[in-house]
Design a protein around this nucleic acid. Structure first.
Lengths: 246, 246
DNA sequence: ATAAAGTTTGACCATTGGTCAAAAGTGGGC
DNA sequence: GCCCACTTTTGACCAATGGTCAAACTTTAT
């Protein structure tokens, strides 16, 4: 018998592996069909376990979906924190987070829809306390990544602090980002607004907020194309596929 | 027998009245419980008709909810168009629409949540074609109210047209508004961001976008307090209750 | 080999969105 | 006042599905 490769027993490792298998298939169904158009029986068949086993991992369908969303949100927070390490001025680092969010949105096209479901109290109330807390924790990491840069920008005088507080600025950036991602997926709106590149539309709106905040250097005061190239090279070397004309 | 007061027969008028009764109670349930936590039987009891009768008006629960949302959206469009008649400079008129949207959000605290449900294709596919078209129509009215002012602002030179197109500017304003309304309802975020007055937070973000667009006069170049007072007096005399410190 | 402990299963239950045949109601003609 | 054709309303019923749990099955310790 081989020695355990970690501190977890075989059973525990199997349990975790199965949970990840379930989450993987649930994510796929969620992406393909949304929330309603699949059921636990179908998921059970997909993972080749029975329905009862699913319920040993998740207390309800909502709990499961929350777990999928939290997994995604953790990746988003990872990307944000990674982007925040970009070497450059504060607004450039904020921009790197903007790219991080686009990178995330490309990898998880259904995330914002699912996240909107979670905002319904009757939905989230059916999930377990632990998973709710885990989700809130990852959300806080995303918030803090932005908030930290803004506080630093204000301390350095690159972002005027007489207009809004650091929290108001963070709230503005978060709001415009979420709103833009949601709206840019609306088929009707895409036609009206003539949106070709969704991610570019999101980042433009972020730029408008930053300019509105007076965050130096303003859009026309600096060669942000060069910054974008650096961000892509340093932080997201794999992202160039979706960013054709940086 | 009295002569008919309109071109509709008694039966037709009763049908319409019943439909409005159903919508009224459905709206109440939606506000109190969200989408899942009530069923058609409960609604039937509330309106004192049977389930079968409900289905003579609406093809599905989703169809019914879409009808409620469209009713709300029509009011939103009405308010937008009313606000657009405000006498003043283009940015002031845009600001009046910002107030209109807050007025609407106060009257329909659940609207944006419900609207997010509609963005799920599996949801909206269960509604009837007519109701989908009606919803898209009211959405277009809202879009156009903003878009029209922006086009005029660009023609007058009050809004520079070398940065973004009129459609991009409209998209930015719509996105920030929706995103801010959604985010400002998030309990966690309200704590983090220290939001006391949600509507003020939404309007601040709109101001940041307008400033970012370079829409003259900028926030610090003009006494918008006075504008706000005029908007409230001329357009929304009844709104002063929620706007304590304009 | 056997018993104890843990794991997996799928038949089963309750809820609920949606249907439809039958009951109830309506109104015009005689 | 009565009949009858037509419309409207009803609620028993159906199918789908989230969730449960006793029994079957597997693993482990002795």
């Amino acid at each position: 018998m081989p020695a355990p490769t970690s501190s977890l027993s075989r059973k525990e490792r199997e349990f975790i592996a199965r949970e990840e298998l379930i989450l993987k298939h649930a994510r796929r169904l969620l992406l393909e069909k949304g929330f309603q158009a699949w059921n636990m029986e179908q998921l059970a068949e997909a993972v080749e376990y029975s329905k009862g086993t699913l319920y040993q991992h998740f207390s309800s369908k909502e709990d499961l979906v929350l777990a999928v969303a939290t997994q995604s949100l953790r990746q988003r927070a990872d990307l944000f924190e990674q982007a925040a390490t970009f070497q450059g001025r504060t607004r450039e680092r904020c921009r790197a987070i903007g790219f991080a969010c686009c990178e995330f949105a490309m990898a998880h096209p259904d995330y914002f829809h699912t996240d909107m479901l979670l905002k319904s109290s009757s939905f989230v109330e059916k999930a377990s306390q632990e998973r709710r807390e885990a989700h809130a924790f990852e959300g806080m990491r995303c918030w803090r990544a932005i908030n930290t840069i803004i506080i630093e920008a204000m301390a350095l005088g690159e972002l005027p602090k007489d207009r809004v507080t650091a929290e108001q600025a963070t709230f503005a950036l978060v709001s415009v980002t979420v709103g833009s991602h949601i709206m840019s997926q609306e088929p009707n709106l895409k036609v009206f607004a003539g949106i070709k590149d969704q991610m570019q539309a999101v980042r433009l709106n972020q730029d408008l907020i930053c300019d509105g905040l007076g965050w130096k250097p303003l859009l026309h005061e600096h060669d942000y194309r060069a910054t974008d190239q650096r961000i892509l090279k340093q932080i997201f070397p794999s992202a160039s596929k979706w960013l054709k004309a940086a």
